[in-house]
Amino acid sequence: MRLMFFELTTEPLDVGAIARRVVPEECGATVTLDGYVRRFTKGRETEHLVYEAYEPMALKEMDRLAAAAKEKFEISNVSIVHRLGKLEIGETSVVISVAAPHRRAAFEACEWLIKELKRTVPIWKKEVYADGEVWVEGE
């Protein structure tokens, strides 16, 4: 089994299964982010979202981020899975799972990873409203 995995899929994400896919023996905690689709953004109601990725580059960037996180924090393993295609409100769009010997490093690495993912991994979301749609441009 691979210890780190990075995936893009149009299938629904099983957060628990992703978090438990790698449970290293030297670790004592896995911190998992379950990011899901919010109904209201800046007061506007979203009907659904569509995610698109530059897939080969996105996977490379995820791999690069995980390697950087391992340098920066006392962690053992990182898994990142992002969903693509159409997502309904409440459905999981991204899972980041970090296993570490001790929880603090896992919490810190997970926060750092989602912040960096939102900044560098080439994935875009289109918000579809009752009366229109817009590709969201990051900061």
Binding site: K60, S93, L117, I123, E137
Partner: peptide
């Protein structure tokens, strides 16, 4: 070629370029 480009980076025959907006995954 699937990596963020530096301004002075050389481009070669057959390369894969990509132009996109600031990313918004997560």
């Amino acid at each position: 070629n699937q990596e963020y480009a530096r301004a002075d980076e050389a481009v070669n025959e057959g390369d894969e370029l990509a132009v996109f907006t600031a990313v918004s995954g997560g």
